[in-house]
Nucleic acid binder design. Structure first.
Lengths: 248, 248
DNA sequence: TAATAGAACTGGTATTAACCAGTATGCTAA
DNA sequence: TTAGCATACTGGTTAATACCAGTTCTATTA
């Protein structure tokens, strides 16, 4: 156990150390609320300096794996594992948690000129084109939501149906293919009633209540990259999120 | 302009510096996407070491005021100001944003033994008591939501109607009076239909769609302190949140 | 015996120093 | 003129060191 740190690795030492500690937490080497070794102990154990140790602990504290108490120690967080933004809001993840098999039908992928209000949110000039992706989201092969994404790609960039079918995740494509890393998003949720067309696609009655989820996603430089609208069947979907206090 | 750092202040230098930079951003000294002085420039300008500078910038980056680009500089984030967890999920804030006057009616405050499922979530032993607070939330004096909070207080701790009327915010009371700082929360949102009683309190018809918001809030040591259920009128409320990617 | 002072831990803040790794720019050589 | 490389910026990582500030426990003292 207790892997060591490779000083020649391309990965920063603090990240290597964070990974080691994270693995030990996940392997339940320490119980929740139990103290991990003190910063000075880790310093000699791994032969790295205290600032490096603290950088690793800072990182894991932000991820929610550890919490600190001044004068007492650093402790393993009792929370079940944290999930990142994508996982938490991911359709697939939510469904699997409820024991349903996720799926999707890609209805269309095409370049369009969306409404002015959407272009404004995407910070694109009036009249410009974005990629629109229409999908039906499935749970155990029956429809749960209608998703329409507007993706602000650069000149010459393209996402194909094959890309989407292969990876399944739009975010993964944005990261791998275009180095656009979804970092932050503003979301709203509200109730609307199903139109006749929506009702037909979702196999429900017109005027049945739907959960409308709108999200504007930003990349690592705070430029908007995607605006998405998802209409969920009110009787088959529950939205789950985790909030953090941003101060300190 | 450009206040200086008081080395004798009880506040840490990095926090003083963060405050100064934050004020300059809010005063729009720099435009969005404009670079702030480099870390080395700030070092000589404020006569503090670079690690201290970086601590201040780290902090403001986490709050969303700044973003960094390796090799290029540190830039002012174009986002409208970030709000902390309370503000974001605060009923009052959301309403004011929509031009409505927030208000509340405190229906009852009492010690109760809640259901086993709630006690389990609050990590309290079976049969123990928690403080239940029932409120009606108002917008422009008409009802918008029904809120029921279950607060896990320690022995001898108490929250009175007067406390709540004076401060308005349960979170502020928890912080000021009991040093319980809400730090993280798990939320779910789903659609339900109004019962006869709920409909009467909210001035709507039975079976009208409602947005059910459940939240479990944790303190700085990841102990659950509050479980709250809020039923919102579907036609008068929109839930707003901001998501972050937790990795790196 | 009980209260208290202090030692010995814990994490928190700050400095100095050095080097690595991306990015932009201007000069030089083809 | 232009491709490419050197350079001088930027932030990113790591170290060694010192001292401050809470917490806990023990040994001393009243």
């Amino acid at each position: 156990m207790s892997s060591l740190i490779d000083p020649d690795s391309s990965a920063p030492k603090y990240m290597q150390l964070a990974t080691i500690i994270k693995q030990q937490i996940e392997a339940e080497i320490w119980q929740p609320r139990q103290a991990i070794p003190s910063e000075r102990q880790l310093e000699s154990q791994y032969a790295v300096s205290r600032p490096t140790i603290r950088q690793a602990i800072d990182y894991l504290e932000r991820l929610g794996y550890l919490y600190r108490e001044h004068g007492r120690g650093t402790f393993v967080s009792p929370q079940k594992l944290q999930k990142g933004m994508q996982e938490l809001t991911s359709f697939s993840e939510d469904l699997q948690r409820r024991g349903l098999q996720p799926g999707q039908i890609i209805r269309s992928i095409s370049w369009v000129t969306p409404s002015e209000s959407i272009l404004r949110r995407l910070e694109r000039p009036s009249g410009s084109q974005v990629l629109q992706i229409d999908r039906i989201r499935l749970g155990d092969d029956s429809p749960i939501g209608l998703q329409t994404s507007f993706v602000a790609l650069g000149a010459g960039e393209e996402i194909t149906r094959t890309d989407l079918e292969r990876s399944g995740s739009l975010y993964r494509i944005l990261e791998d293919k275009f180095n656009q890393i979804p970092t932050e998003a503003d979301e709203t949720l509200e109730i609307t009633l199903a139109t006749v067309e929506e009702a037909a696609l979702l196999h429900i009655k017109p005027d049945a209540p739907l959960l409308l989820n709108e999200r504007l996603t930003y990349n690592q430089n705070r430029r908007p990259i995607e605006f998405v609208k998802i209409l969920y069947r009110g009787d088959r979907y529950r939205y789950i999120t985790r909030l953090f206090r941003s101060s300190k």
